[in-house]
Simulated assay, not measured.
Amino acid sequence: MSGRIRILCDNSAGPLSGTLGEHGFAALIERDGESILFDTGGGLTLLHNAQRMNVDLRAVGQVVLSHGHYDHTGGLWPLLSTCGPKRVLAHPGVFTKRYSLREGVCRPIGIPFSEDFLAGLGASFSLGDAFREIAPGIFLTGEVPRSSGFEEGDAALFCDLAGCDSDRVPDDQSLVIVTEKGLLLLLGCCHAGVINTLELARLKTGIDQVYGVVGGCHLAFCSQQQIEETVKALKIAGVKKICAGHCTGFHASARLAREFGGGFRPAHVGYTIECD
């Protein structure tokens, strides 16, 4: 099987002329004639960057939503309006009300559109919380058990405007791609924890080797201890390649770069990784 992952949306843009960054994430998986869009960014750069990268989003057969935050779902409106109806895979909790309480201010951060509105634009939703194969050798994790003792999650996320109902983001899910070198994990924000997700991927596929991790690791909003424990666990797991972006954070990215050396790359807009 031959294929590649191309980063279409991220906080930072790479050297590819004319591409733009925004707070958000989207990646395109192209494999054996199939095109799967994983997340859609915040809505400001998806179509623009796709055009600059000569990507025809009309060819996308499935759209996978990692979770129901605006910076991963905001591009659904322009995508559907411009590129036609799409099958959209997500967790049943993707439309939950979401808020972030930082610096004393509570802000809405949930998906900015209703299910009915998106359905009216041509979205056909396939909602599920179980591990499932969505294409040959490509799996959606579904809801990820929180089993590691050190992945505490983001304490600033809530399901109410008053900041009383803590949000563990149970709808967080990732993609698992089987390659010749081992498993390749494609993460949106990975609120469930990188190591929790890695262990679920191993368990469900029966493949122990995890070759690489691509996307947002949500380490920008956690303790230094969690960063160190995550790096340690990734090394123990034998991960060879880390392509981190979006919510990974500067300090965590620097730590990963120091530990993995040439195996680390920033997952900026325009970056491509093979997934044969």
Rank of each mutant, 00 (worst) to 15 (best):
R98V: 08
G21W: 09
I109L: 09
S148E: 10
C189D: 15
V169L: 08
G24Y: 14
D71I: 00
V214D: 12
S81C: 01
P85G: 13
S126Q: 14
L161Y: 06
E259C: 00
L219Y: 05
H246G: 07
Q62D: 14
Q209R: 13
F113R: 08
I227F: 03
H218S: 15
T141N: 09
E22M: 06
S253K: 00
D116E: 15
T141W: 03
C83I: 09
T45H: 05
D172W: 02
S2P: 00
V239P: 01
G110W: 13
E229G: 07
D172M: 04
A237R: 15
D116M: 09
F260M: 09
L57F: 06
A201L: 07
A13Y: 04
E151D: 03
I29H: 13
G41S: 02
L76Q: 03
H67Y: 05
F158T: 11
M1R: 13
T45V: 12
L20W: 10
Q62V: 15
L76P: 02
G110S: 14
S147Q: 11
V239I: 12
N196H: 02
A244W: 07
L219F: 02
L234V: 09
G93F: 12
R132F: 02
P266K: 06
Q209Y: 04
R202D: 13
E151Y: 03
L89V: 14
G93E: 08
L118W: 10
K232R: 15
G110T: 11
G137C: 13
T272Y: 02
V94D: 04
K181A: 14
G263M: 08
V213T: 13
G41E: 01
L127E: 04
K240M: 01
G193K: 04
S81P: 01
G75F: 04
V176F: 04
A252P: 07
S126R: 10
L198E: 11
P15L: 13
E143Y: 03
G104N: 14
R265C: 14
H72V: 13
L89E: 12
H23Y: 07
T40K: 11
H268P: 12
S147H: 11
V60F: 09
D10G: 10
S253F: 00
T73R: 04
C159Y: 10
K181W: 06
A13V: 06
H69D: 12
S124Y: 09
G261L: 07
G153W: 04
L28I: 04
N196D: 10
T73N: 02
G206R: 12
L127Q: 06
Q226W: 03
G188P: 14
F264K: 05
I29K: 11
G188W: 15
F125K: 05
C243I: 14
L161M: 08
L175A: 06
D39H: 01
T197G: 04
D129N: 13
C243F: 08
A50E: 08
Q51S: 08
C222L: 00
M1G: 13
G137T: 15
E229F: 04
G14K: 02
D154S: 11
G41K: 02
M53Y: 01
E152V: 05
S2R: 07
M1H: 13
I109P: 05
